[in-house]
């Protein structure tokens, strides 16, 4: 524990948080440009001869998954730093990335079944990857519920951090379950550039970049809001 930490160093916003705002603004410009290119690429991409128009969900769905998992990993790691070092800015980052992660995960869980209905003929299958993702979604919903049920306090922050770490541990554990019991899997393996048809590589790549940037942008924005909210004395919240 640091002995002579001045208020400005510990209190909101932290030195790191003050820089976040600058990063976010720069990111916003890049994001806007990427979005235009991405939108254009998706619209002009050829329509899949087998799956039809519904195939275009694949330009959205996998990047959402990366964002969701990234959000949950950041939540866990930020929680660990908060526990170990007592850095409250990391607690606020954990809130931000959990919320954005849940949004990405929700969108992934919505786009997935739409594509599945068109391709597999069913909305949902208890496929290993789907099951695990659904469970993870519940873990982080529980994380947010825990935060909002117990109100802003150091104790809530600590509880949430521990739960975030547990959630982080659950990701490999759940995948270990799949590996052990064999993935009776319909879900396509992660797409490699080569497995995409002609003209599908570019929108796919742009999708990853754009949604990746969007993820960062939203996390930074939410982080900033949380930091300003605490600075204004409203206390941290997880609504």
């Amino acid at each position: 524990m640091s002995k002579n930490s001045s208020h400005s160093e510990l209190g909101p916003p932290s030195a790191l948080e003050r820089r976040v705002s600058t990063w976010r603004r720069t990111l916003g410009i890049v994001l806007a440009l990427c979005s235009i290119a991405y939108g254009w690429a998706v619209i002009t991409a050829p329509i899949d001869s087998m799956q039809g128009i519904i195939q275009k969900i694949l330009y959205v769905h996998p990047p959402l998954a990366y964002g969701a998992y990234l959000g949950f990993v950041i939540t866990g790691i930020a929680g660990m730093i908060f526990l170990g070092r007592g850095r409250e800015d990391m607690d606020r980052l954990a809130i931000a990335s959990a919320e954005v992660g849940v949004i990405f995960c929700t969108l992934m869980l919505i786009t997935g079944p739409i594509w599945a209905r068109g391709t597999w003929g069913v909305w949902w299958s208890w496929d290993a990857r789907l099951t695990v993702t659904l469970l993870l979604w519940f873990v982080y919903l529980a994380y947010l519920l825990l935060r909002s049920f117990s109100g802003p306090s150091p104790r809530t922050a600590r509880f949430a951090a521990i739960y975030g770490v547990l959630g982080l541990v659950l990701i490999p554990l759940n995948y270990y379950v799949i590996e052990i019991f064999g993935s009776r899997s319909m879900h396509p393996e992660n797409l490699q550039g080569g497995s995409l048809g002609d003209g599908m590589g570019l929108p796919f790549l742009l999708g990853n970049i754009t949604l990746g940037l969007a993820f960062l942008y939203l996390v930074f924005l939410r982080w900033e809001v949380e930091s300003q909210r605490t600075a204004a004395g409203e206390g941290s919240s997880a609504r």
Partner: peptide, 8 residues
């Protein structure tokens, strides 16, 4: 809190 953690 507990049920999602009990899947494994």
């Amino acid at each position: 809190l507990l049920l999602p953690a009990l899947f494994p």
